[in-house]
Design a protein around this nucleic acid. Structure first.
Ligand SMILES: [Mn+2]
Ligand SMILES: [Mn+2]
Ligand SMILES: [Zn+2]
Ligand SMILES: [Zn+2]
Lengths: 164, 164
DNA sequence: TTACTAATTAGTTGTTATTCCTATTTAATA
DNA sequence: TATTAAATAGGAATAACAACTAATTAGTAA
């Protein structure tokens, strides 16, 4: 008897959790299943609301924390709202950015090829594009010295600015 | 006697403010000068702190509001922290995103060319790249119907999610 | 110059997203 | 089954903004 695709994915999830030394909780399995079936890049809030219907006792913090854990495990990506605050750029030249996931530095770079990226035809028809952003994410030179000591976090830590 | 470059830039600023029907206030000129001399993509908070040294009475809200105004005027860009909440993506296929500035929708698209972007040599030396993100920002098909009625905002409005 | 008016500002309060805290529960193991 | 370290629920705290309101002020027209 062949395993269903759903069962197979859940098995893989359980296996990966074990590899990371994480416990298999009903909450984790539920959140995993819900997010894997989401195709609209939901927020933690949106996932929480959906899950709440079937599991009224789950807390928002658990959903949010678990999603961040999944991002660290590589089960999913964070595609928007890094938790970083809004940042401003007066540089009017066409240019692109390096973003250090460790320290949050944003560094300009210039590369003509990236300025000339074409937009697929089928997108032009359905979407009016105002701006193309190319961002290289990684670890900056300065932070690489510290990498030996402590692993760079997958999810950028919030650095409080404080003092208003 | 030739005008200094600084004076010339300030003149252009004043001119553009007038074109937008904006008043020339000392606060605006100060913020303009400060942000134009920033090359590290500062946050509103960071700019506020610097300005505060010379103008102790300025308020954070004025700095923040003014920076958003400048973004609308095109004097500067917002390069990080769209104001959007964190959003999750379980899609493991190499793909890219359209982001609608009006409604906040994030839509997957697949385009091989973008998967094969090369990274400049001089960057590889100084920065370890984990991920390349290409984001096309604009207005989605659904929102374009409404565009005639009201101009799409330059700065994406925060859509509160509410209800926890 | 002066008076008027609408825009702008400082200071305060409100809102939202996210994280932290802690008592309690639970999964994994021996 | 007993032990224990990890995970959870629920609530409180924090950070980043945005909204509000009573002055203040830039722009203008007399
Ligand atoms: Mn830049
Ligand atoms: Mn996606
Ligand atoms: Zn760094
Ligand atoms: Zn839209």
């Amino acid at each position: 008897m062949k395993k269903s695709i759903k069962k197979k994915m859940t098995d893989k999830f359980i296996e990966t959790c074990k590899a990371f030394g994480l416990k298999i909780t009903p909450q984790r399995i539920t959140i995993y299943r819900e997010v894997l079936n989401s195709f609209d890049h939901p927020s933690a809030e949106a996932i929480y609301r959906k899950i709440k219907e079937a599991h009224p006792n789950i807390s928002f913090d658990t959903v949010n924390r678990t999603l961040l854990t999944f991002a660290e495990m590589g089960f999913l990506q964070i595609v928007e709202g890094s938790g970083d605050v809004r940042r401003f750029d007066p540089n009017a030249e066409p240019h692109h950015h390096l973003r250090c996931k460790q320290c949050g530095a944003i560094i300009d770079f210039y590369y003509k090829k990236y300025n000339q990226l074409d937009i697929p035809e089928e997108i032009k028809e359905k979407f009016s594009v105002n701006r193309i952003r190319v961002v290289l994410e990684g670890i900056c030179h300065r932070c690489q010295d510290h990498t030996n000591r402590r692993e760079a976090p997958f999810v950028s830590a919030r650095v409080p600015l404080r003092g208003r």
